[in-house]
Each structure stands twice: as structure tokens, then as C-alpha cells.
């Protein structure tokens, strides 16, 4: 299929690096607190993965192992879940992660031009790639649920509405 969601997930092996445990100290305490909100530990899987991504920016194979450990699951099981959800990164991404909606409602309002402008202004060049300065990764995503405000984009946790190609430069400059 042409058009790439630029998924940051993939078959390949993610770079190996020393894994410093995520679930220690306050993060561990937060997780323990979560355990009280669900009847099973397994149910804390999505929240736990979010915690890893918050702490590390992405979810490495070793982090998957750690999550499996603390939730009493197997790494393979956790990996199957991680790869199901497109918001979890199984590879490192740029300092700022940009998601642009290009589904039909936004598409008919010019979303593809916003993508082009973003790829150019960030220097990423292509979807899913990280800019040479390490600042950005841009991907296309499906409907962000803000179709009345085309084109919405997410830069990290900032939800920005009504983005047009003209506004892209200003937005990019806000993120260093």
C-alpha cells in the first residue's frame, strides 16, 4: 500500500542498550497504586507501557522484559500487545514525535499538504524517519477525532488544531 503510516514498529531488532529499570521508586509506587484499580495485574499492561514510554521515549525489548516481570506475564505476550497499538514506539524516535491525521475528513481539507510542509520544515524528509538533528519524527496517523478542526496534529502531548501548511514553520520552531 502506498502512503506509509511510518510505523516505528518493525520486524527488526531494536538497538540493544543497557536497560535501566523503569519501575523503581516513585514509578513503582505509581504502578502499585494502579494495581488497586484493577482486579488483575495484566490489566495494568497498557498503563505500564505508557509509563515506560514516558520515562524512556520508547519501549525496548529489555523494557518489555521488565514489564513482563512486574506484571507476571511473558515477554512474548507483552510484545504482542505492544505491537498491536500504534502509539507505542518499539524503536527510538526523535525528541518530538509528530502525528498528522490524513484520514478522509482531513484529507479533503488538505492534510497531505500539511504532511509535506512538516516533512520539509522538520527536515525529516520522509515519514517515519527521524530528522538528522534528532529533533523530529513525523508520521501519518488515522483519524485523530478532531475532524472539524482540520488538520489536527499531535506534537508529543500537544494537540494542535487547524494546522495549515502556512502555520507549520511557526509550530516547528516552538519545539527544539
Amino acid at each position: 500500500m502506498s502512503g506509509s503510516h511510518g510505523g516505528t514498529a518493525g520486524h527488526g531488532t531494536a538497538p540493544a542498550e543497557e536497560h535501566i529499570p523503569v519501575f523503581t521508586g516513585p514509578t513503582r509506587a505509581r504502578l502499585e497504586q494502579l494495581f488497586t484499580k484493577y482486579p488483575t495485574r495484566q490489566a495494568c499492561l497498557l498503563p505500564a507501557l505508557w509509563m515506560v514510554q514516558e520515562a524512556r521515549g520508547w519501549i525496548s525489548e529489555q523494557a518489555i522484559g521488565e514489564v513482563a516481570d512486574v506484571l507476571e506475564l511473558t515477554p512474548a505476550y507483552v510484545k504482542g500487545v505492544v505491537t498491536f497499538y500504534t502509539m507505542y514506539h518499539t524503536h527510538p524516535v526523535g525528541r518530538h514525535f509528530v502525528q498528522v491525521c490524513t484520514t478522509s475528513p482531513c484529507n479533503i481539507c488538505g492534510a497531505e499538504d500539511v504532511v509535506k510542509a512538516l516533512l520539509q520544515e522538520t527536515g525529516c524528509g520522509e515519514l517515519g524517519a527521524t530528522s538528522p538533528d534528532g529533533r523530529f519524527t513525523v508520521i501519518e496517523v488515522e483519524c485523530l477525532g478532531a475532524c472539524g478542526f482540520p488538520t489536527p496534529i499531535l506534537v508529543d502531548d500537544d494537540f494542535i488544531e487547524n494546522v495549515t501548511p502556512e502555520k507549520v514553520r511557526g509550530i516547528v520552531q516552538r519545539y527544539q
Binding site: 484499580k37 498503563p47 505508557w50 497499538y85 500504534t86 483519524c143
Partner: peptide, 12 residues
Amino acid sequence: IEIVLHRGAGAY
């Protein structure tokens, strides 16, 4: 009555 917010992770 308790309300627990749960965050999805990208899956229509």
C-alpha cells in the same frame, strides 16, 4: 462509586 480513567494507545 469509583471512576477509573484508562488510556488507549492507538487502535480504532
